[in-house]
Amino acid sequence: MPQEFSGVTVVVPANVYFDGQVTSRTVKFADGTTKTLGLMQPGEYEFGTAKPELMEITAGKLGVLLAGETEWKEYAAGDSFNVPGDSKFQVRASGVVDYVCSYLDA
């Protein structure tokens, strides 16, 4: 997992969710791909996504329940997981979680 991205455009306005408990910044790459760099405060949240996503945890621990699954899975710094497109998923953060979300082609 890279520690730095070079040659990118950063969208200045933050994406703010759940009354500021989850925030992210959009990063656009020259090849047309997009990622968000996010920070999640402790809590439980439900997200929806149109496109498939790759979530990479860079700090903290995150419990995840993907659509159609019945068991929560735990991810920590250095771990990643895929989210299917056009779905919802639930997360539980017991502490602050730093993450990178990559939007994938369907």
Rank of each mutant, 00 (worst) to 15 (best):
G68Y: 06
E69A: 13
N82F: 15
F29E: 03
G20T: 12
S24P: 06
I57L: 09
T58S: 12
Q90M: 10
G68H: 08
G85K: 15
S24F: 07
V22C: 01
G95L: 06
W72P: 01
S87T: 15
Q21A: 14
K73Y: 09
P52H: 11
L66H: 03
K73H: 12
V91Y: 01
E46Q: 15
G78I: 11
E69G: 04
Q41N: 05
P52D: 11
T26K: 12
G63W: 05
G32F: 06
A30M: 04
I57D: 06
G20C: 12
G43Q: 10
K73C: 06
E46F: 03
T26Y: 03
V22R: 00
Y45A: 08
G32N: 04
F29I: 05
G95K: 12
A76M: 11
V64E: 04
G43K: 08
N82P: 03
D31Y: 07
E53I: 12
G38R: 04
V22P: 03
A59W: 00
G20L: 11
T58P: 02
V91S: 08
A76E: 14
M40W: 03
G78S: 05
F47C: 12
E74T: 15
L62I: 08
G78W: 04
K88F: 10
G60P: 05
F89V: 09
D79I: 02
P52C: 15
F29Q: 00
K51S: 13
V27E: 13
L62W: 00
K73P: 01
A30N: 05
V22Y: 01
V64N: 02
D19P: 00
D31H: 11
A59K: 09
L65K: 06
I57P: 02
W72K: 13
K61R: 12
V83K: 05
T70I: 13
Y75W: 07
A50W: 02
L62P: 00
I57R: 04
E71H: 04
A59I: 06
T34M: 09
G38W: 00
R92E: 02
F81G: 08
A59F: 01
M40P: 00
G48M: 07
S87I: 15
G60S: 11
V97L: 08
G48L: 10
K88Y: 04
K35V: 15
K35I: 13
F18L: 04
G68S: 10
L65V: 01
W72V: 13
G43L: 07
G43M: 08
G78Q: 04
G20D: 08
I57W: 02
V64R: 02
G32Y: 03
V22D: 03
Q21I: 01
V27Q: 06
P84S: 13
L39C: 12
V22L: 02
P52S: 14
G60N: 07
E74D: 13
P84D: 11
T23A: 14
E44W: 02
D98A: 14
F89C: 08
V97T: 08
E53F: 05
T49M: 15
E71W: 00
W72R: 13
M40I: 11
